[in-house]
Write a protein that binds this DNA or RNA. Structure first.
Lengths: 231, 231
DNA sequence: ACCTGAACACCGTTCAAGT
DNA sequence: ACCTGAACACCGTTCAAGT
């Protein structure tokens, strides 16, 4: 929107060893920049969760005034967008690739996607409501290309991608939201047990407790791929 | 937590036709109650979205002081929990059921679940982060029972339920988040076209535009059921 | 070009008090 | 038992001003 940029001013000139004045932070921080803001936002989100990210607190962590952020960033929404995409970089298939064929590649891409989001538990539930940044688009592009090469017809491609995307998102969001402390988990199942005459089946199967999330994820993914892809 | 209840005081006694005093609302509202609070919260959420629900605004809609709500409700979190579950009641399979077998029942249950959430677009993205109320548990119980009767082994039951749950959640959340105005949609694809050399495949397939969400949902669901269930 | 403090219009919730 | 207003400790953001 605005003309604000943040690209080229990294030269930082030679600051001539600023003599620290009383009351100031001794080790003067590097100047503000989009990169620093985003990196610190990710740290803050990792440490405090979505509700912990506050423009004021973020500025505090950066050693700047709260309003200084607004020079580099339009608003809080943009901070979310940038932090999210920053966390979703894809480094490509592992060294052992090539030999494993397209199916292995797809599975790797989706498991890596999930793993990236699980490393930053705030990211999964944030993603669906935010703009698609370059890293997200890059992952979609790569997935698309691989499926296409695997023989998925153009007419079926979008449906296949969205089915997989939906599945990965749902699995990750659920996984994060049920990753409670053991006490919370026990309490929930406890509450359930108290109502066992109303919910006998899920009480008996201990639905809320013993879940092999990773195994279940992989199994469902395989079923989807069986259906979505030819051959 | 607290000893607060809201069950039995519905008698409301005979209020003796309160003479409306100047400055007061003429038609005096019915007394506050959990039910009224939740119903109004749902209306407000439907109209204004998640960010539009504010304790103060909610109280305004109810014609009461902001703090009055806290007698009936612990905090804002609980309002969310209650509003969410209120919206997820399940009325059971249609009249024509019985003849359609367990697979038809499962499909109906999950499509109804999705439809209920789509009717209240705030609900889908809220659900994963909230406590499971009786209506949600009821749906899980019914799904569980049906799958069990269909022959899914006890050992596979939880994985099957969570796979379906995840898929439904992911599909619904994505669907809601991409249900932008046409201009937004066009703008997004526009931006993509500008980068078409970086994302040629998804640009060519118009991934962000022509999506048959409902068809894709049903297709992926069928694939999952094929894999998850015996026979 | 970059950063700042004061100020505005909001929040959720505690508390002591009213009826 | 139920409702209330004042007050507290926060928010995101605008604006006019500093360097």
């Amino acid at each position: 929107m605005a003309a604000k940029r943040s690209g080229a001013q990294n030269k930082r000139s030679q600051r001539k060893s600023v003599s620290p004045q009383a009351g100031q932070a001794l080790r003067s921080e590097p100047p503000l920049s989009r990169e620093r803001i985003v990196a610190t936002a990710v740290e803050l989100l990792d440490a405090e969760g979505v509700d912990g990210l506050t423009m004021r607190r973020l500025a505090d962590c950066l050693g700047s005034g709260a309003m200084s952020l607004y020079w580099h960033v339009d608003n809080k929404e943009e901070v979310f967008d940038l932090a999210l995409d920053a966390v979703l970089e894809y480094r490509g298939p592992p060294q052992t690739a090539g030999s494993q064929g397209w199916r292995g590649e797809v599975v790797h891409m989706l498991e890596d996607w999930r793993a990236s989001m699980l490393r930053h538990p705030w990211s999964a539930s944030l993603l669906p409501r935010r703009a698609l940044g370059p890293n997200i688009l890059g992952r979609l592009e790569m997935l698309s290309k691989t499926l296409s090469r695997a023989g998925v017809a153009d007419a079926d491609l979008n449906a296949a991608i969205w089915s997989l995307w939906n599945y990965v998102m749902g699995a990750t969001i659920t996984r994060v939201s049920f990753d409670l402390s053991d006490e919370d988990m026990a309490a929930a199942q406890q509450r359930l047990t108290g109502l066992s005459e109303r919910y006998p089946t899920i009480e008996r199967s201990r639905l809320l407790l013993d879940n092999d999330w990773d195994g279940a994820f992989r199994k469902g993914l395989d079923f989807l791929l069986d259906g979505l892809t030819p051959g």
